[in-house]
């Protein structure tokens, strides 16, 4: 199926899924968080879609992002691939920055278990229904979520100063 046909096929069943306008040729579908579990199951189970592979699940903070209109959300991105039909699809799920919660797709694509832990670690998105949502890259006692635009840099970790004498961070404010 081509991109337009995939979009039409999905919209026939999930009318609240809208294609985003992007400069890229490949369409991104904006999905409301509540629709995601049903949509994910649908994408995997329909034989003519058969998105068997979750290639990537990542996210980014839209604060300070040059988007129109300005948004106050964290965007979770799902990149899907069908190994039998060789077509691809990208999904966007926006979650409010204040308390971002997105349903987990770990039960549908087990690859999401690690990906969702990473997005939780770096952006603080909680994935409802994830089997064990804890940090994966940062140490367990790390404070904050580093890829958030309002992240406050640590001054030290385990008593070891973060900077050498005379250095200063060029990327943001420092805690403590």
């Amino acid at each position: 199926m081509n991109d337009a046909a995939i979009t039409a096929r999905i919209q026939a069943v999930f009318p609240d899924v809208q294609p985003a306008t992007t400069p890229n040729a490949q369409p991104r579908l904006c999905v409301p968080a509540a629709t995601l579990p049903a949509l994910a199951r649908f994408l995997l189970d329909q034989p003519d879609l058969a998105f068997t592979s979750l290639m990537d699940l990542t996210g980014y903070d839209l604060a300070k992002y040059p988007s129109t209109p300005p948004s106050d959300a964290i965007r979770v991105v799902y990149l899907l691939h069908s190994l039998c039909h060789l077509h691809k699809l990208a999904l966007w799920v926006d979650a409010p920055r204040a308390s971002p919660v997105v349903p987990s797709v770990a039960g549908i694509w087990p690859a999401a278990i690690y990906f969702e832990r990473e997005v939780f670690d770096l952006l603080g998105v909680r994935f409802d229904g994830h089997p064990s949502l804890h940090r994966i890259l940062c140490p367990d006692d790390w404070i904050g979520h580093p890829l958030r635009k309002d992240y406050v840099y640590p001054a030290e970790y385990l008593g070891v100063a973060h900077l050498r004498e005379g250095q200063h961070f060029e990327s943001g404010p420092v805690r403590g």
Binding site: L137, P146, V160, A161, H162, L163, H168, F169, E170, S171
Partner: peptide
Amino acid sequence: FSKWSYSVLNGVDKY
């Protein structure tokens, strides 16, 4: 990474 990273240790001689 010394000035831009939150996660990198600035010199192994600290440990």
